[in-house]
């Protein structure tokens, strides 16, 4: 876990994931090229490459964007989240091939610098249908590059989690740019109902999944607000917490996870140090709180990752009154030892 940085820490799941990615991409290119050569044989190689990789990248982007909400809605989709970064980098590669060929094809070997040409060959910035669509694609590609370049854990550590996440939230801006790049570019000339509909439906699916997930998340937040009493917050009954699992509560605007294991209770800050995953949705494995996103672990009694790892999260004090669990909302310094409180097994 970030001890010594390797390009990829391979394991069986990542290998399977990547095999599926590569296979799907190859299949797409083969089918696209095949159909084009059969039905539109007068194409040129450059046009074929540009269109094949451009359309591939868009489809990949849609798949990437639904993984997030799907994982929130159904934890069985978590494995897709686990290695999503490989999918992202692969999508960037497809987009880069599309963009690179286009840049060369349409802007190079001319009388000005090709990148300068991207921004100045069409100056109709004040029109919608005449808008220089290639600028939108170029900007989206820059965002994807920044995301692909920083997708390694090295950057997670060295940019703060907040900065890293902010950068990666730009995917939504890139998504909008890409949609408009197609609508104001290819669709202005090759207008087919099928393709316009395909993209519109794609956007609808991504949007709906996000909306549904958002509503569920808001409901969850509301349901877990805790009640204050004497400096201690009353949170829940012991029986509400599953064995080896946790329940999440909002405490002083922070989310806290209370774990039950081996007849004990511990409370820690819900946010994993790695990529901000929800620890409270994790599980106790081998005595360690295990994050559901990438499997990062923390010891429940002090919020420290087991040696040789060095991550630390904040812990909270708990008290039990009968079967009612109370939490002290003041977070302790990260890595502080807090004795787990015993509770009766149900």
């Amino acid at each position: 876990m970030g001890l010594d940085y390797q390009w990829v820490l391979w394991n069986k799941h990542k290998k399977t994931y990547d095999k599926v990615i590569v296979f799907s991409m190859l299949l797409y290119i083969l089918v696209f090229v095949g159909v084009t050569l059969v039905f539109k044989p007068e194409t040129s190689i450059e046009t074929l490459v540009i269109r094949a990789f451009g359309s591939l990248a868009i489809i990949m982007l849609h798949v990437i964007l639904i993984i997030g909400p799907l994982s929130r809605l159904d934890s069985r989709f978590m494995p897709l989240l686990y290695n999503r970064r490989h999918l992202g980098v692969s999508m960037f590669i497809a987009a880069f091939i599309h963009g690179g060929f286009s840049l060369f094809q349409f802007h190079a070997l001319g009388d000005v610098n090709p990148v300068y040409s991207v921004f100045t060959s069409n100056m109709d910035y004040n029109s919608l249908t005449n808008f220089p669509f290639q600028v939108l694609g170029f900007l989206a590609l820059l965002i994807f590059f920044a995301m692909a370049a920083t997708s390694h854990d090295f950057y997670l550590k060295n940019l703060s989690t907040k900065t890293w996440k902010r950068l990666h939230m730009l995917v939504y801006l890139a998504y909008a740019l890409v949609i408009m790049h197609v609508f104001l570019g290819a669709f202005q000339q090759d207008s087919y109902v099928a393709t316009a509909l395909l993209l519109a439906v794609g956007f609808l699916v991504v949007a709906l999944l996000h909306i549904v997930t958002g509503i569920k998340e808001v409901r969850k937040t509301k349901a877990t607000k805790a009640l204050l009493e004497d400096g201690w917050l009353q949170v829940c009954q012991v029986s509400e917490i599953e064995e080896d699992r946790a329940k999440i509560f909002t405490v002083e605007k922070e989310r806290v996870a209370i774990f039950k294991y081996n007849g004990k209770l511990s409370a820690i800050h819900n946010v994993c140090k790695h990529q901000g995953g929800p620890l409270g949705e994790g599980k106790i494995i081998d005595g360690c709180i295990t994050c559901p996103w990438h499997g990062y672990q923390y010891l429940p009694h002090n919020g420290q990752s087991p040696p040789p790892f060095t991550e630390k999260i904040a812990a909270y004090r708990l008290k039990l009154v009968g079967s009612q669990v109370y939490i002290n909302p003041v977070a302790l310094a990260e890595g502080t030892e807090v004795t787990p409180i015993p509770c009766n097994h149900e």
Partner: peptide
């Protein structure tokens, strides 16, 4: 933004 722009472009 997106559906509006999509509509007006096509």
């Amino acid at each position: 933004a997106v559906p509006t722009l999509m509509f007006f472009s096509v």
